[in-house]
Computed example of a mutant assay.
Amino acid sequence: MKEAVHIGRNPASQPDLEDLLNQVALGDQRAFTVLYDAMAGPVLGVARGVLRDRAQAEEVAQDVLVEVWRTASRFRPERGSAANWILTLAHRRAVDRVRSAAAAAAREHRAALLDRMPAYDQVTEQVEARLEREQVRHCLRALTDVQRQAVTLAYYRGLTYRQVAQDLALPLGTVKTRMRDGLIRLRDCLGAGA
Rank of each mutant, 00 (worst) to 15 (best):
A57R: 01
L44N: 02
E128A: 13
L17P: 09
C189K: 11
A129C: 02
L170R: 13
T124P: 00
A47V: 00
A104I: 08
G45V: 06
P15E: 05
R110Y: 04
L65K: 04
G158H: 09
R79P: 03
L168A: 08
H138T: 15
A47Y: 07
V66E: 03
S73Q: 07
V123F: 05
A47D: 04
N84E: 06
G193K: 06
A61D: 07
M39C: 15
L20I: 10
E59T: 13
A192M: 12
A142N: 01
D115N: 11
G80I: 02
D181M: 11
P77T: 02
R178V: 08
R97G: 01
D16G: 08
P77Q: 00
T174I: 06
Q62P: 05
H91M: 08
R187K: 15
R187T: 10
E59A: 04
L159V: 06
R110L: 11
V123H: 09
A169E: 15
L20M: 05
A94P: 10
I86N: 12
L87T: 15
R185I: 02
A169V: 10
A111K: 06
A55I: 01
V68A: 07
G8E: 03
F32A: 00
A112L: 12
V64C: 08
R30K: 11
F75V: 03
A154W: 02
E132R: 09
P42Q: 07
M117H: 02
V50T: 14
V123R: 14
A31F: 04
Q62M: 10
D115P: 00
G173N: 12
D37W: 04
A40Y: 06
R130P: 00
V164Q: 08
A55C: 04
A154K: 14
D28R: 05
V164H: 01
R92V: 09
G45R: 09
I86P: 08
S81A: 05
Y155L: 05
R97K: 13
G80Q: 13
E18G: 15
S13V: 00
L114M: 07
D121A: 12
R130A: 13
V68Y: 08
E18I: 00
E78G: 06
V123C: 05
T124I: 01
Q29N: 08
R48S: 06
Q166W: 12
A165G: 12
L190G: 00
M117S: 01
V127Y: 08
D19H: 03
D53C: 13
A105N: 11
D167K: 13
L114F: 12
Q122W: 03
R185K: 14
R148S: 09
